[in-house]
Design a protein around this nucleic acid. Structure first.
Length: 681
DNA sequence: AAGCAATAG
DNA sequence: GGTTCTATTGCTT
């Protein structure tokens, strides 16, 4: 999982002289995602608190009270804060952890399915507010909310004397008014709303950072943990950069780069800032050198690039020793079965297959992976999607073994410690054949199709292909992290249990519910009845969540546990779910606090985001109860009807290597027939 | 297109 | 830094 920090960063608290951060170079492409001439980007970074542990604590809330570690093989990959208080850290060996904390409760986390699904739900939820969401691993997301901020600036001129939501990174303890940085202040309110949405809808807490670029947003998001947020003002850029321990702490500077830098005598960020550019260029080449220099200064013009559906799906397992071909075949078959099932849910057809191995090396862990890949014959690709899992797996195993023998000589001994299987080059099924669904993809599609313009750097085949080029009801693939379309993380959990749905929390069950019985008053039963059944279910689900007719997602999540289900009135469960505002520092758990920083006033000076994006004929309440995917799709569509520029033009800074084409956001799919579901009747 | 290095969580 | 199980991007061939 994560080899980096996330500790309660016992910061030195040494706030030294003010270093005034460099101005953003006027020439650089930092407005890539912006309207031309826009003042500043506003970038958010979200980081879920100990993500895997949170998911497990939702499945079994009793785990909240105990020290919990998520175990993969013999490693604790993450743990909850109770465990951290007792000295358990990320990536600690199980033996060490048990020694530190004998009461540590362990949950196996090798199967990432639930984490992956929950992760994509978070991204999807964020995307319903604003399409520019970029994933970083399973538990982090960047967002470019510049447009939202600009819209609010125009529509809701900030009142006098307003401030920020959450913390402000404020080493000099200055008096700060929101009016000094109105866009960042608005960004902080948006961040609070988004964190609240993630909490109330999905039950997950996390940190947010608000700044003018991705680098800074990420760096600042960790300054108050857990479940808090902080804004970085431009005047403190220098401070936050220099407060980083060494160059290795700069995102983008990995092990190898740090090693090279060290050879040049560069250890601190300040060293890097001051190293003559020609020296850097000699070691890294011009492009990388400039990037490193910029990063050291807190300058980052890289755009928030919407992630869209994954580019590849893979499954792997590691082990101490594997040395017979029979074992290899067995393992590959096992991995492929799981992978093919995921591929089926995704709905796209993989065009290439890759097998990766890791060999044992006794002395050093000179431990690189080797891989071989090949095209997947299209008839096989068809089979993968067409449901008959075994029919696809067996030929794939045979394909995999051919690749295997390109790496491992059949006659000689071998010792493997890992096998990975991967599908990539994922192609959307041809449109038109569309099954049932009205909603196609959750995300704007990226790249990947033949008919698009070549990208600047020539790497991918193109960008900007809108989802399904067909009419209102086209393809039905749910190309989203292995989730069926419209299927949610908690529904997935429910399906995994053996408990019949009728006994479960939110009762989507026909026997216990008359059709209109639980509908919110303002939902027209007739319109409701006209919706597809899946959507009805989703609506009921979210209606319950909003109205707390059904206590919470937690109650649904709680079921697949080994413990007897708690009642809905259970105090702990309720307490967690009723937590009024996770964004409110008063209720936040974090003990740690940077010395010398202050929490600026907590009360929202801005009204919360009234739904200004909705067309007038749409009932906001009904809208809010729609499935998130649908909300997002509609919003994106409505947005596109405005003549504002959406997609940054590819001119960028006018220099070469200017990154890539921005990926298309918001497909131009039509499906306006969905609108009929919202008209008040 | 293939293979790998680097980086990330 | 490597443990784990992914995922992405960019270089080189």
């Amino acid at each position: 999982m994560d080899s980096s920090d996330e500790e309660m960063d016992g910061d030195d608290g040494q706030w030294r002289s003010q270093f005034t951060g460099p101005e953003e170079p006027a020439t650089s492409g930092w407005s890539v995602n912006n309207p031309p001439g826009a003042p500043h980007r506003v970038i958010l970074h979200f980081d879920l608190d100990c993500f895997y542990a949170q998911v497990e604590m939702i499945r079994d809330p009793s785990l909240r009270e105990v020290p919990l570690g998520i175990q993969q093989k013999y490693i604790i990959v993450t743990c909850n804060y109770v465990a951290r208080e007792r000295g358990v850290t990320k990536l600690m060996s199980v033996t060490d952890a048990k020694e530190k904390c004998p009461e540590l409760v362990l949950v196996r986390g090798e199967d990432l399915t639930l984490y992956r699904e929950a992760s994509h739900q978070v991204t999807e939820l964020l995307s319903s507010f604003c399409p520019l969401v970029e994933r970083l691993g399973f538990d982090e997301n960047f967002m470019d909310v510049t447009e939202m901020v600009e819209r609010r600036m125009k529509e809701t001129p900030p009142p006098e004397g307003y401030s920020f939501s959450g913390h402000v990174y404020n080493p000099s303890n200055a008096e700060i008014s929101g009016s000094d940085h109105p866009r960042l202040a608005l960004g902080s309110y948006i961040a609070a709303e988004l964190r609240d949405a993630v909490h109330s809808r999905l039950g997950l807490t996390g940190c947010a950072g608000v700044a003018t670029n991705k680098l800074l947003a990420k760096l600042v998001s960790g300054t108050f943990k857990p479940n808090q947020q902080t804004v970085l003002l431009p005047e403190d850029v220098g401070h936050i950069m220099e407060s980083l321990g060494g160059v290795r702490k700069v995102p983008g500077v990995g092990h190898q780069t740090a090693k090279k830098l060290h050879q040049l005598g560069v250890v601190s960020v300040k060293d890097l800032q001051l190293l003559p550019l020609p020296d850097l260029v000699k070691e890294f080449g011009g492009a990388v050198a400039r990037r490193l220099r910029n990063l050291s200064l807190g300058v980052d013009d890289s755009p928030v690039t919407p992630s869209g559906a994954p580019q590849s799906l893979s499954d792997e397992d590691s082990f101490k020793k594997m040395s017979s071909e029979a074992e290899v075949v067995e393992k590959i078959q096992q991995l492929l079965s799981r992978l093919v099932e995921r591929m089926q849910k995704d709905g796209r057809q993989p065009q290439t297959f890759r097998l990766t191995i890791r060999r044992y090396t006794p002395t050093n862990k000179w431990f690189s992976r080797e891989s071989r890949q090949c095209p997947i014959p299209s008839h096989l690709g068809q089979k993968i999607l067409s449901g008959a899992t075994e029919d696809a797996v067996l030929p794939l195993v045979s394909l995999a073994m051919k690749l295997f023998h390109k790496m491992v000589d059949g006659g000689s001994a071998f010792h493997l410690t890992l096998i990975n299987v991967c599908f990539s080059n994922l192609q959307s099924r041809a449109a038109g054949a569309g099954g049932k669904g009205a909603i196609t993809a959750f995300f704007p599609r990226r790249s990947q199709n033949q008919d698009s313009a070549p990208s600047i750097d020539g790497r991918r085949s193109g960008h900007g292909v809108p989802p399904a080029p067909t009419g209102s009801s086209s393809g039905s693939e749910g190309e989203f992290g292995g989730l069926e379309r419209n299927q949610s993380f908690f529904e997935t959990l429910l399906e995994r249990t053996d408990i019949p749905r009728s006994t479960q929390g939110c009762g989507f069950n026909e026997a216990t519910r008359t059709p209109s019985q639980r509908l919110p008053a303002d939902v027209d039963p007739e319109v409701f009845g006209a919706l597809p059944e899946e959507i009805q279910k989703e609506l009921l689900g979210s209606a319950h969540l909003n109205s707390s007719t059904c206590p919470s997602i937690a109650d649904a999540l709680r079921l697949p546990t080994n413990k007897p289900p708690k009642t809905f009135t259970d105090s702990e469960g309720n307490k967690f779910w009723k937590d009024p505002s996770p964004a409110d520092p008063a209720t936040a758990v974090g003990p740690e606090r940077l010395a010398g920083t202050r929490t600026l006033t907590e009360r929202a000076a801005f009204p919360p985001s009234s739904d200004r994006e909705l067309p007038g004929n749409v009932d906001p309440l009904v809208f809010s109860q729609l499935p998130l995917g649908i909300q997002r799709e509609l919003r994106s569509e409505w947005r596109q009807q405005k003549p504002v520029l959406k997609v940054p033009s590819s001119k960028g800074s006018g220099r070469r290597s200017q990154g890539k084409d921005p990926k298309a956001v918001g497909g131009s799919s039509q499906h306006n027939n969905l609108l009929k579901y919202f008209k008040r009747s």
